[in-house]
Amino acid sequence: MNCVDTLPVHLHRAIPQGACFAIIAPAGSARLDTHKVSQWFADRGYRCRIYPGALQAQGYLAGPDPQRLQDLHDAFADPAIDAILCMRGGYGSMRLLDQLNFELIRRNPKPLIGYSDITALHTALYRHCGMLTFHGGMLNADLLGGKLAPTESSLLAQLGGHVRAGEQIVHPAEFALDSVLPGEARGPLLGGNLSMLGATMGTLAELDTQGCILFIEDVNEPLYRVDRLLTQMRLAGKLAGIKGVLVGDFAGITTAALAPLLVETFGPLGVPVLAGWRSGHCDPNVCLPLGARVRLDCGRQSLVLEQDLFQA
C-alpha cells in the first residue's frame, strides 16, 4: 500500500460520550491504580476496560507476547470497545508484528492511540489496513501524569470529531515554532518515533514515505544518533519522495541545535520543514492524526486538516 494522496483511509466513528476505551499494554509495563483509571474516564463521561496484559509485568514487557497480542486482538474484535488506548511505550510492540491478524483489524477499525514504541503499530496498521491512528497521549505518563491541557484536550477533540476538514490542528502559542525550510506541502501525515522508523525498516511495518508529510520525534538520542537515523533513512531511500517534514520534540536537543542537521538533510530535497512542534515525549504532547491528509504551511507555521477524521 503506497503513501499517496489518493490512498483510502478507514475513517472511524467519532467517539461519543459514554464510549468505552480499551486499556492495553502492547509494550512495557507500569503499575496501574485501577480505581484512579476508572475515575479519570468517568469524570470525562467515558468508560474503560483494562485488559489483562496491562496489569502484568514480565521483565521489561507488560506480560508475555501471547497475552499482549490477545489483548490487542480482543480490543479490536469487541464491538463494545470504541477506542484503544495504549498504557505506555517502552519496548515490545515490534515483537507482535508478525502475529497481527490484519484481517480481523480491517474488519473492526477503531482509533488506536499511543506514541513512542507504539509507532510500530501505527505504521503496520496504516500499511496493511489503511487505518488512521492517533499519535497522542498515553494513559500512564500523559493522561494520568498531569501534563498540560493540550495533551488531553487535543486528543479528546480529535477523537470526538470536533476538528474538521479545513481546520488547524492547534499548536500551543506559548511554544515557538521554527520554519527551518520554507514552503507549503500536502499529503498524508505519517511517521512517529524516529528510532522506531529505523528499527522497522525491512519489516512488515516499514513505512512507505512516498508523497507523505513526514513526522519525526525522539527521546534520549544525542544529536549524532539523530544524524545516524536520518542518514539511515536517506540511504534507504525513505526521504526522496516526501513532500514535507513536521519535526516534533527531540527531548534533550534544542531546535536551534537540531536545525543545521535538518537543513543538511532536507535542504537538498527542496521540501518545507517546520520544527519545534510539541508532540512526542514532551509536555504538552499535542495529538496528531496519522494517515490523515494535511497541509503543512511553514509561512503560516500551521498544520491544517484536509479531510474529516470520521464518517458522518
Rank of each mutant, 00 (worst) to 15 (best):
C3M: 06
V4I: 10
T6F: 09
T6I: 10
H12G: 04
R13E: 15
A14S: 15
A14G: 13
Q17L: 14
G18S: 08
G18C: 06
A19P: 06
C20S: 12
F21E: 10
I23T: 03
I24W: 02
A25E: 05
P26K: 13
S29F: 14
A30R: 13
L32F: 02
D33L: 03
H35P: 00
H35A: 15
K36G: 05
D43F: 03
G45T: 07
G45P: 06
G45K: 08
Y46T: 10
Q56I: 03
G59R: 01
Y60K: 14
A62G: 14
A62P: 03
G63Y: 04
G63F: 04
P64I: 04
Q67H: 04
R68H: 08
L69C: 05
D71Q: 03
F76H: 14
D78Y: 11
D82S: 14
R88P: 00
G89Q: 08
G92C: 11
S93H: 02
L96C: 11
Q99S: 15
L100R: 05
N101L: 08
E103D: 15
R106E: 07
R107K: 13
R107L: 05
Y115H: 11
R127E: 09
H128L: 01
H128Q: 00
H128A: 01
H135V: 00
H135L: 06
N140I: 03
N140W: 08
A141D: 12
D142W: 02
L143T: 03
L143N: 06
L148C: 02
A149F: 00
S153E: 13
S154W: 02
L155W: 03
L155N: 09
A157H: 12
A157E: 15
G160R: 14
V163T: 14
Q168M: 10
P172W: 06
A173Q: 11
D178L: 09
S179N: 11
L181C: 08
P182F: 02
R186K: 09
P188T: 04
L189W: 01
L189D: 01
G192H: 05
L194A: 03
L197K: 05
G198K: 06
T200H: 00
T203Y: 09
G211Q: 05
G211A: 06
L214F: 04
E217W: 00
V219C: 11
N220K: 12
P222K: 06
L223C: 04
L223K: 02
D227S: 12
T231L: 08
R234L: 12
G237W: 01
L239K: 07
G244H: 09
T255D: 13
V263F: 01
E264T: 12
E264A: 15
F266M: 08
G270M: 11
V273Q: 06
L274S: 12
G276L: 13
H281F: 14
C282N: 06
P284R: 11
N285P: 00
N285F: 00
C287T: 15
L288V: 10
G291V: 10
G291H: 05
R293H: 04
R293Q: 10
R293I: 12
V294K: 01
G299M: 02
D308R: 03
D308K: 03
L309E: 13
F310D: 13
F310Y: 15
Q311W: 09
